[in-house]
Amino acid sequence: MTRRHHFHLDHAGHSVSVTVQTGHGAAVVVLVDGKETGYVKLSGDRPVTVAVELPTDPPSQAVVRVTPGPDAPHCVLEAPGAEPQVMPPRAY
């Protein structure tokens, strides 16, 4: 059964949203300010890292670490100059 889990965090004035789709066609999609900046297909319950670019001046690199299961997914945003931040679930 396919299920989508949504996470959201505001960081450095930018909106970072993650959708983790489990089940058939499992994947992670990362949006920064509403634009898709990262996509990774999932393979089982293995954690994945999705590299993204934040549109700061100058642009900065960040990563979203996703642990898809076996229960509910878990997402952490790691950006330069900031402590890793757990991304809270978002009801959509």
Results as ranks from 00 to 15, higher is better:
51 A>H: 08
36 E>T: 09
81 G>T: 00
33 D>M: 00
70 P>K: 02
57 D>E: 12
11 H>E: 08
35 K>V: 13
62 A>D: 01
26 A>E: 03
58 P>C: 07
25 G>C: 04
3 R>E: 13
40 V>N: 01
42 L>G: 03
40 V>A: 01
70 P>D: 08
9 L>N: 04
47 P>I: 10
40 V>Q: 08
20 V>G: 02
20 V>E: 07
87 M>F: 10
17 S>N: 08
28 V>R: 05
65 R>C: 07
91 A>W: 15
30 V>H: 00
43 S>K: 13
32 V>D: 04
60 S>R: 14
9 L>R: 13
8 H>R: 12
23 G>W: 11
20 V>D: 01
39 Y>L: 05
88 P>A: 12
10 D>M: 00
44 G>L: 10
43 S>T: 13
60 S>I: 13
50 V>M: 06
48 V>F: 01
79 A>Q: 00
17 S>M: 07
13 G>C: 07
52 V>S: 04
3 R>G: 11
30 V>L: 02
2 T>F: 00
6 H>V: 11
10 D>C: 10
21 Q>T: 15
44 G>Y: 09
76 V>D: 11
5 H>M: 09
65 R>Q: 12
4 R>D: 12
6 H>Q: 09
81 G>L: 01
30 V>G: 10
30 V>I: 10
55 P>F: 08
41 K>L: 10
54 L>C: 07
